[in-house]
Design a protein around this nucleic acid. Structure first.
Lengths: 207, 207
DNA sequence: CGCGGAATCCACCGATCGGCTGATCCGGAT
DNA sequence: ATCCGGATCAGCCGATCGGTGGATTCCGCG
């Protein structure tokens, strides 16, 4: 019997998961959490075999929860189950210690298989997630430094190089040099494309 | 007894909704659809009181389904139930004939209330959706023309004005004049901010 | 049949940006 | 102790962009 903890802030999704796994043989849902903090709290007490974890949650997000669980030494396998397969989410989650990463629009059968595999400690990835990982491995990801991201955010907000410089208390020259680095890392040639690419990679998020 | 049709491509969400409404008094789930086309097909036959409709679906998306249902004269009330409250989705859905627009992270009680209200033909809006609508009413929405959007997409892809002009078989001057219109409509002053704002408003979507 | 909006085009100018080269400083990794 | 990458700054030039002020055509709406 695989003991499950379901963590998702959407009541609907929690109900759906619980119903699905309750109906499947070999599973037992031992707890539900509506946010990351609650998930960690329950996991510590319940020590479930597998934690189904949404990444987008209030209080403590999925990534934070994974990190926290690892820090606390909770031995549960973590199966990330989310709507998004954006680069920016997948890799950090896996690096932080998630055992698998499935998309919510996966068919039931895949979810059940994924949970069983996760319980055995095997890695499970949705096809689209796997594809993304592969392309990332092929093309090593040049991450933006915090400072570069800060510059890019101000640029996206419509600031000129001069204005951006003023806001960051640095020189226009520095802003330009950050921008050149950003262009190189994102593989673009101008600020507009950099902003677009940043949105595509999930570096910038819609407000 | 309110007869429901649940349309969502995520099995989990469908299960969650069905379970929730099956457990609530006064509701009966008469059908489930995994895509927009199926939703329309079932709605025509079943004539449910309320259709719970996700916007993001394969085959025929939610908006298309709403339009189609209206065209066919299906009298069911449509309650849009989605994860996103982006401007670009809310208004078209409502214009197309949706009775209400709820977010999936709404509490159970709100979903039940919403469905009952929709069955009575009342409009239901999630608070965040309502807020967005109000700000839109206050600030009349200047939509981008198809041509302007085309220009903006090319700009976001990193094309210069000249390159954009070449691709569209128009002059650089025309591109610039489109851009000026775009800036005015989006309330920005340069291409980078225009791209960012377009992502924020859902005019441009991550690939 | 005008009116307005969308799409198209033109010219000109100052401001800004992108591209290049090179330099200093510092802290963490080796 | 050394090396490297991040962050900082500098100057220069040509290309591009944003702003202004028109102008024309076409189409739908009233």
């Amino acid at each position: 019997m695989i003991r499950l903890l379901v963590a998702d802030d959407h009541p609907i999704v929690r109900d759906g998961l619980c119903a699905m796994f309750a109906a499947a043989p070999g599973f037992e849902v031992v707890g539900e959490a509506a946010d990351g903090a609650e998930a960690v709290r329950l996991a510590v007490g319940l020590r479930p075999d597998v934690i189904l974890l949404d990444l987008r949650m209030p209080e403590l997000d999925g990534l934070g929860a994974i990190t926290e669980l690892a820090r606390l030494g909770v031995p549960s396998r973590i199966l990330v189950l989310t709507t998004y397969d954006t680069d920016s989410h997948v890799l950090p989650a896996i690096e932080a210690g998630a055992t698998g990463y499935l998309l919510k629009d996966s068919p039931r059968e895949e979810l059940l298989r994924g949970a069983r595999a996760a319980a055995r400690g095997e890695s499970v990835l949705s096809p689209s997630v796997a594809a993304r990982l592969l392309t990332r491995v092929r093309t090593p990801p040049p991450p933006l430094s915090p400072r570069e991201l800060e510059v890019l955010e101000l640029i996206a907000a419509g600031n000129s190089n001069r204005e951006t410089a003023a806001r960051l208390f640095i020189t226009e020259a520095t802003v330009k040099s950050h921008l050149l680095n950003i262009y190189a890392k994102l593989g673009v040639n101008d600020r507009a494309a950099a902003v677009a690419e940043a949105f595509n990679r999930g570096l910038l998020v819609p407000r």
